[in-house]
């Protein structure tokens, strides 16, 4: 069942992005979409709307980049709870550290080992 929910929510979030891309001007590039989804995810999370989605759909809500934003927001809040003002600065990165490091390390090695096919 969780797989079905993940599929549904993950797919629907991407449908929203596809609509944004196809129905708006060419000025919306993939970079804008990614930035928009991270920011939107963080804001939704701050208002408490994103966690219920994660609880219901699991990876369906965490795999899209809005989940990344949710993680940053969650981290910031946790950081404040644990360390106060300093946590504001460290929290967001703490929760996302694994993803960011993985992306940088694997990205680095992939760029070195492979050659663009064109």
């Amino acid at each position: 069942m969780i797989f079905f929910k993940a599929f549904l929510v993950g797919g629907l979030i991407c449908v929203v992005a596809q609509l944004l891309m196809d129905l708006t001007s060419y000025k919306i590039t993939p970079a804008h979409i990614l930035v928009g989804f991270v920011t939107a995810g963080a804001l939704l999370s701050a208002f408490g709307f994103y966690q219920p989605l994660v609880n219901w759909a699991g990876a369906g809500a965490t795999v899209p980049l809005s989940g990344f934003g949710h993680l940053i927001a969650q981290g910031a809040v946790q950081g404040v709870q644990e360390k106060g003002l300093l946590g504001v600065f460290s929290g967001g990165i703490t929760t996302t550290a694994t993803g960011i490091t993985a992306a940088i390390v694997f990205g680095y090695f992939a760029s070195i080992f492979f050659r663009a096919k064109g």
Binding site: G10, G11, I13, C14, V15, A17, Q18, L20, M21, P30, A31, I33, L34, F37, V63, P64, L65, S66, G67, F68, G99, A103, I104, F106, G107, Y108, A110, S111, F114, R115, A116
Partner: peptide, 20 residues
């Protein structure tokens, strides 16, 4: 399309492709 851009895999792709 957006189905491969928005997931975290698209984020990784957007890092590797220019670097490569």
């Amino acid at each position: 399309g957006a189905g491969s851009i928005v997931p975290i895999t698209g984020f990784a792709n957007s890092m590797v492709s220019p670097a490569m």
